[in-house]
Nucleic acid binder design. Structure first.
Lengths: 207, 207
DNA sequence: TGTACATCAGTGAACGCGCGTTCACTGATGTAC
DNA sequence: TGTACATCAGTGAACGCGCGTTCACTGATGTAC
């Protein structure tokens, strides 16, 4: 049955949003189109009225995640007065609630491993997600802009992503908590110290 | 046809080693038992002479990875004189050759995302892999033992894992190189600075 | 040492199942007159 | 405004395929005498 004008676009957006959640929750490969369409309130047959393949949905969903998650976290951080914003962002990222809710969380932490195995067109979303985080840090704290600042920001992002991946991967609840806490403390301490400016990186590169 | 005594155990070990490579390369869910057994030089039917299910193999392969990778990297680092060992370990972990060869690399970086979705019995391997890395850092540099040292070690591990996951996930080759380089420089710089000792972590914990 | 038999690692066909994908069909909506 | 027709989002059966798993069978090896 034909749908009212504009509803097709809304349905399409709903499929993408549902996929963005299920992919982060269960993984891309482990998520079937049948269950996905049911979760979106549809039957599987209609999928190809909106996407030409699962691969296309994967790309669009990953792009959606890259474009929405970080900016939502930034918005919440910006409810705080300016000098506290970056700390609030770091605490929110490295929280146990983020760890326990991958379906609404950082795409790199939830899907970074799978993204590394995808073709280049999908890995562009990885670049986008990473750059969104870098831009967010720069927007929240001016010390993280400029070449040196961006280098520091990349280390902060790596630490946050790795702490989240590790905290989810380990079975030991105490260890999981310690990983998040130590990363939080370390990042916040480095921000507060007056000599937080990084010297220029060295040239040594080992293959 | 019956095999000579002891060969069954060797075959079993070969299947586990093959799985350990393919799981890290292609992901656990995306790796089929048929292709896996062929890669091990066998046909698929024999699989259940060695394992009661794919799940059992996954657990054994993840345990194998956790127990072998880090110690191999430590051994190579120990070829250097003692004060350089930790730096060599960090450079080896954060190298582009590690990035480009997940099949022989760190299990947390390659499978951390998938491990987070597995049942508790498999996530015990995540704990093991993480603890192996912590123990390796302590063995390579005494400043990383004891409660404060272990907290610092956890942050180093988180940064290494996150840098590797991110470097693999992004499509932009320059960004990927920068992520590894910045993480390397940051970790090595912090090691070299005389005030590398961390103060006790604060108590603040946000859910 | 030689023979007869039991063992069991490995083979390959077959199982049901869910996957991604295709397709004929439906029927409410939008459009033309 | 009312009628006739075209559109197309969504349905549900069906496709071939590879998945994890099972099983009857093979045949070289180990064991018993």
């Amino acid at each position: 049955m034909r749908k009212p004008a504009g509803e097709a676009a809304r349905t399409r957006a709903r499929i993408i949003a549902t996929a963005a959640g299920k992919f982060r929750q269960d993984g891309v490969v482990a998520t079937g189109l049948n269950g996905l369409m049911n979760a979106a309130g549809l039957t599987h047959g209609g999928f190809y009225k909106h996407f030409k393949s699962k691969d296309q949905l994967v790309e669009e969903a990953c792009g959606h995640i890259a474009r929405t998650v970080t900016s939502a976290m930034v918005e919440r951080a910006c409810e705080a007065p300016e000098p506290e914003r970056l700390a609030r962002f770091i605490r929110a990222y490295l929280s146990s609630s983020h760890r326990d809710h991958p379906e609404t969380g950082c795409g790199l932490a939830a899907l970074g491993g799978e993204m590394g195995r995808m073709q280049e067109s999908a890995r562009a979303c990885g670049t986008e997600a990473f750059n969104e985080l870098i831009a967010a840090l720069a927007a929240l704290d001016a010390r993280l802009s400029g070449p040196d600042g961006e280098a520091r920001a990349r280390v902060i992002v790596a630490t946050m992503v790795g702490a989240m991946v590790s905290a989810r991967a380990v079975g030991d609840a105490n260890l999981s908590r310690a990983i998040l806490k130590d990363a939080r403390d370390s990042l916040l301490r480095r921000l507060e110290s007056p000599d937080a400016r990084a010297p220029a990186g060295r040239q040594r590169e080992r293959g």
